[in-house]
Simulated assay, not measured.
Amino acid sequence: MSRARIRLATAAAVAALTVAAAPSAAALPAAAPAAAATPAAGGRAPHGLRPQAPVIRQIVLQGAVNVRDVGGYRTYTGGQVRQGLVYRSDGLGKLTPADVGTVAGLGLTKAVDFRVPVEVQYDGADRLPPGLPATSRPVSDLGLYTTLLTAIGSGDPVRQEEMLGGGRAESYMRDIYRTFVSSPENRAQFAATLREIADGRQGPLLYHCTSGKDRTGWMSYVLLRALGVPEQSAGADYLASNTFRGAYDAQVRAALKQSGRMQDPDLLIPLQEVRQDYLDAATARMEADYGSFYGYLTKGLGLDLGTLAALQSKMVR
């Protein structure tokens, strides 16, 4: 096999690891009780409001498995985040024509892509409805995608263990999450997206990365908390990616083992999953650098009170 073909095959394996490559609709995890997030987890609601548990609204597609409406959550003040305004997603490069029609039905006016160029190069550009261009807004993955290309492409179980085993994959993920907060470039990308969401002239918006769980997960966590959704409810939305991606990611590991690319594909589990300690790494960095979540919003992201008020007015009813 030529070097070009090997490189292409390796890229395809990584794309399968990180992107939903058109699984059948029957294989999609259901957005039912296991995927629900309860505001009660964030503490008792004020003014005698009884907490309600919204069912996360999944947008069922064949070429992506982690597409959801961010709305539906209750806030501390008893409001509710509006649905139909903001969506979060994994990669959109594998959408079928029917999927594109479903996305068109969402009425999106902007699609923000947090992927870095190497991801777009190997996974492909977004497949979007006519007239809806992708807005490239890359957030660093600290070279994770290239690391996966190298590890899987080597086909060497010893090297794969050296690169990903012994807690190294978990440590890598925590480092990535810290840079969501510490990197000025990353902060600028998240801030720009929040400003667009707050803009009353901006229609429905979708943002995504490759798996829709890390960069997209942090963006969603920050948005929900900025809207006054209790911290643990925002965290439950973050952790729900494991429900939506779990079955597909297990199939990917099985395929890698069967193909002989990896003897121990479970080395990939820390990279495929979201975990509370990853989120904790980001929030700990946030508190160390800015003292509080509000400090992160105003000093780290540079959002003024007018923008925060506009965000509330638009997104909470």
Rank of each mutant, 00 (worst) to 15 (best):
V229D: 02
R245M: 05
G246M: 09
G235R: 14
Y238D: 05
P230M: 11
G260L: 13
A234P: 01
S259D: 12
F244C: 07
V252G: 07
N242W: 01
A250N: 07
Y248S: 02
Q251Y: 03
Y238I: 01
A247R: 14
V222K: 00
L223V: 03
S259Y: 05
L239A: 11
Y248M: 10
Q258L: 13
G235M: 12
D237M: 02
Q251P: 10
R253Q: 14
L239W: 09
S233V: 02
V252W: 03
Y248F: 14
Y238G: 06
A247T: 13
F244M: 09
D249N: 13
D237C: 07
Y221G: 03
G228Q: 08
R261C: 02
Q232F: 11
T243I: 15
N242V: 06
R261P: 00
R225S: 12
V252I: 13
A254S: 13
G235S: 09
F244T: 04
V222R: 00
S233E: 12
A250F: 00
Q232A: 15
A255N: 14
P230S: 13
Y238M: 05
L239C: 04
R225E: 12
Y221C: 03
Q232W: 09
V222C: 04
Y238Q: 05
A255E: 14
L227R: 02
L256P: 06
A226R: 00
D249S: 13
V252Q: 14
D249R: 13
R245D: 04
Q232C: 10
S233N: 10
Q232Y: 12
G246E: 08
V222W: 00
F244R: 09
A255I: 06
E231F: 00
V252D: 04
S233M: 11
S233Q: 13
L223P: 02
R261T: 02
L227I: 06
G228K: 07
A240P: 10
G228Y: 07
A247Y: 09
S259V: 03
Q232D: 15
A247W: 10
Q251K: 13
A226S: 14
G235F: 05
K257M: 08
G228M: 10
L239D: 07
E231N: 05
G260F: 12
A247M: 09
Y238S: 04
A236P: 08
Q258F: 06
A236R: 05
V222S: 02
A250H: 06
R245I: 04
D237V: 10
V222L: 02
S233L: 11
S233P: 00
G246W: 08
Y248V: 08
P230Y: 02
E231V: 11
V229P: 12
L239K: 08
L256V: 09
V229T: 08
R253E: 15
